[in-house]
Design a protein around this nucleic acid. Structure first.
Lengths: 287, 287
DNA sequence: CACTGTCATACTCTGCAGGTATCACTGAGT
DNA sequence: ACTCAGTGATACCTGCAGAGTATGACAGTG
């Protein structure tokens, strides 16, 4: 059979990520031997070898890599099903299923657009309740995939719209945000090259799931930290034009001529059938 | 926890589709009581009521409908993971993972395009092996979703591209295929209205998962049957222009002026990472 | 008012997921 | 060369959960 229980998937994902049975077992809150057996059994059932046991740790085979990717998608779909079902629960009031949408937005981005959208939608007849869920850097995609959110504001080219349906809402240029006193702040416009290699102003490194990319810049994980570092003359940042909304007095914004445009979309899982979603999208595209 | 074992999902889907515990249990090859208990337990775990037990059959609650949709997507993702992993198995030859792609095409459609594509791709250096999988009416979507296929030729507006990545390959008009002797066959062009309500030529009804839509037309499930019925003067059909390739002598094709254009796309699951896929897509878009 | 169809409950049993103890093997250090 | 640490596999045992059988509760029907 091709049953593939979710338990087996969870187990395999843990091992594939840790590449170590002991640590994987610990992460799963179980002992190592049953984990080993479960994986063996999974391999036998699929008729495929997933891991190369090298006496010194473990590595993935080609089939293992495939299962790592496909399995993640499948697990996301499962937790999404659970979450969305729970959220729809207690429903069936006289006005149909309880109307509620979870909207994921990158924390701090598109304030103005978001405000307009929420106001316009709230004015609609029989508008659903919108819960705004602030998301970390580029995390909206995962939130849609695993059901934490029903719909999201995404920003191409930073977010990937692959696998979602979407409508374009807004296009804007990008600006460099510099310390007010910096020589470059006097320019009318700048290019990406101008701001990307300033020795005394290295680009900040954003936290991604707790780790930071390598480089000389300071480590940050929210916009306030970044704003402060810019104000102190320690770094420079590139942002969509709408970031002007939160600039400090110590900041100067200079348009970038050659930075790619940022396109804000409203996006949702392609198979979504939430009745309230259509109304929100209609409102959004009319803005 | 929000574990949601696939077994539970399968059980629920069966009940939600049959709306009858007994039949669902039979379909699952088990007795009815354990099924009842499993569903109850699922409802308790999710903290949500999924089914209304009406003493006379069963009906879905709002949350139940959500789980029916989301669960189908999740189950598809799981079987896709299993299938694709199996297919990648035995891999890891010296030339990297075994290169093989399964391409789903609507049986009989786009013959010429398909031929050109396969020839052009076969000429590429390190081309993967392409397995062509004929699919029933509009079934390519399901095949991509549950992993029976890796990539598909789809025809908008008949197929929905929602949830897939795709590239446009070809646009064509549509034609009416009439019995050669019919009065309308003498026209230069026709409109949809002209052919949709001819009393003596009712439109055929295609099989969809074994059932047929209601209507006066004959029931068919493959193109040859249809061709024969047209030749016999019993029905009329509307097809993309490329269907001219298989017309019989007893058929006459007349262009339709107001039928929507048919756009052929090559489409694949948005999260796909198959190395061979990129080459095929590149070849396809160059045609 | 018996009867049928339907889902729920009670009870039992078995298979398997999980734990503990231990083995087998390899590479490193002295 | 020998020991030791680290890692995954094996052997064996246990308890629970998932499956079966028998039966109950209830509603609609003729």
């Amino acid at each position: 059979m091709d049953t593939l229980e979710t338990r087996e998937l969870r187990y395999f994902m843990a091992v594939a990520e840790e590449l170590h049975f002991g640590r994987a077992a610990e992460r799963l809150g179980m002992a190592q031997p049953p984990l080993s057996r479960a994986i063996q059994q999974l391999e036998r059932r699929l008729g495929v070898s997933l891991l190369k046991r090298n006496r010194r740790g473990v590595s993935l085979t080609g089939a293992g890599e495939v299962l790592l990717h496909e399995g993640r998608a499948a697990l996301d779909a499962i937790t999404a099903a659970a979450r969305r079902t729970r959220r729809a629960g207690g429903a069936d009031g006289p006005g149909g299923p309880r109307n509620r949408l979870v909207l994921a937005v990158k924390a701090g981005a598109s304030h103005e657009l978001l405000h307009k959208l929420l106001d316009a939608y709230a004015a609609e007849p029989d508008a659903a309740e919108i819960e705004v869920l602030p998301s970390g850097t580029c995390e909206q995609e995962g939130m849609l995939r695993d059901g934490r959110a029903d719909v999201a504001l995404m920003h191409a080219p930073f977010n990937s719209l692959a696998g979602f349906d979407s409508e374009e809402l807004m296009t804007e240029g990008q600006i460099a945000i510099l310390p007010a006193g910096h020589p470059l702040a006097a320019h009318e416009t700048l290019s990406l090259a101008d701001v990307s290699d300033i020795p005394e102003l290295p680009l900040a490194r954003w936290s991604r799931h707790g780790t930071y990319p390598p480089g000389p810049g300071p480590e940050i994980h929210d916009q306030t930290q970044l704003a402060q570092l810019i104000a102190l003359g320690r770094t420079v940042a590139v942002f969509p034009d709408s970031a002007r909304a939160w600039l400090w007095a110590e900041h100067t914004a200079v348009p970038l001529t050659d930075a790619p445009s940022v396109v804000t979309h409203i996006a949702w899982p392609a198979h979504s059938r939430l009745p309230a979603l259509a109304g929100l999208i209609r409102t959004a595209t009319r803005l």
